[in-house]
Design a protein around this nucleic acid. Structure first.
Length: 347
DNA sequence: AAGTCGGGGCG
DNA sequence: CGCCCAGACTT
């Protein structure tokens, strides 16, 4: 049975929906899963080249599970939210070890995997197996919030609950994969955040926000709070081969698992560290322009200080989370956008 | 300059 | 449960 809402969505999909996205070709759970994780944080146009490189390097879940984490982060470089790449890797290993490389087909089992919550599990099972589950990503939230004039912000539990109820209510028992894709497409191409194309929308008739004449008022906005400002020093330590020291960051926190310049709260901390590791006084060769990086919850001002070593450094720093970065050689670890930008500037 | 995004993790 | 965390991109 296909409810009227879903019927309209499906008719629109047949004419206007996207059917040629890379992950729509051979939509196996693995291929859909990787695309969904990438799409959680990034728009389709940006994801496509990343997805192609990722599938080329990791064509199946076993290849991904067996790869070094550095390789995974390298292909994620620039996408942000690096915990998702780490979760992707971890989940691949669980699917290899606990499910013999075959993704579970039960939604509850799927949701125990790292990085897969209710909506992502539903999307994978819907798009790859046609199972009838509702999704609720940002696009679908917008469509439903407008159609039903749900005013609150989806970060509020009761608003989220209402949206899930609407999503479940409209679910068709047939053509679920097309319906899921259609809802995402409508949110992305028609029911956009600003300037929605209501005149082209198949749901215009029943849409409460349209009737009110103010689709832009939905969904409700996250209450804003001002960002704390933080500052730190980034040490650009150069040895006499012209190589720069990179530090493997801890697995959690900002830029987790990526490689970046050693960071210090102040020059005293930096000087102490240099004295301890290189028996060298801290002679700052250059103070480079401050880099400002904005995260969702604070703004970071990084002051790069260049220090040149006069003696050849001991090689004890190699391995164990440290390396000397050679500008002209291939480096397999992941770099944050800030570090990459920095390297681009000096090259 | 401000808004966006789904899920993890903690108390 | 309620709250905070994470980053590069679009508008």
């Amino acid at each position: 049975m296909i409810p009227e809402f879903a019927n309209k969505v499906l008719i629109w999909f047949d004419q206007h929906g996207r059917k040629d996205l890379p992950w729509q070709q051979h939509p196996t759970p693995y291929r859909v899963w990787v695309s969904e994780i990438m799409l959680q944080q990034t728009q389709v146009a940006t994801v496509i080249p990343y997805y192609g490189r990722f599938m080329q390097r990791f064509p199946d879940v076993l290849t991904l599970a067996d790869a070094p984490q550095d390789d995974v982060l390298k292909l994620w470089e620039g996408l942000g939210y690096y915990s998702r790449a780490r979760n992707l890797h971890k989940t691949a290993q669980r699917v290899r070890d606990e499910y013999a490389c075959v993704f579970p087909t039960d939604r509850a089992d799927m949701e125990t995997l790292s990085g897969i919550g209710r909506s992502t599990a539903a999307a994978i099972l819907s798009l790859s197996h046609g199972q009838a589950h509702a999704i609720l990503d940002g696009n679908v939230k917008r469509v439903l919030a407008r159609y039903h004039a749900v005013a609150g912000w989806s970060g509020e539990p009761r608003t989220l609950k209402q949206l899930w109820e609407h999503a479940e209510h409209h679910l068709p028992t047939q053509r679920n994969a097309d319906y899921t894709q259609a809802m995402m497409d409508m949110g992305a191409t028609l029911c956009t955040r600003s300037k929605p194309l209501c005149l082209l929308c198949p749901l215009q008739d029943g849409c409460k926000a349209f009737q009110q004449g103010k689709p832009q008022d939905y969904p409700g906005k996250r209450p804003k709070k001002d960002l704390p400002e933080k500052t730190a020093l980034a040490l650009l330590l150069r040895n006499n081969d012209g190589e720069l020291l990179l530090q493997h960051r801890p697995p959690t926190g900002i830029w987790g698992g990526l490689w970046s310049f050693p960071e210090f709260a102040d020059e005293t901390a930096m000087a102490d560290w240099l004295a301890q590791h290189f028996a060298q006084t801290c002679i700052v060769a250059a103070r480079l322009p401050t880099l400002t990086h904005t995260f969702s919850h604070y703004r970071l001002h990084l002051q790069p200080l260049q220090v040149d070593l006069d003696a050849h450094p001991a090689r004890i720093m190699e391995g164990n989370g440290w390396l000397w970065y050679k500008a002209d050689t291939h480096f397999t670890g992941g770099l944050s956008a800030a570090v990459r930008q920095f390297f681009q500037n000096i090259e």
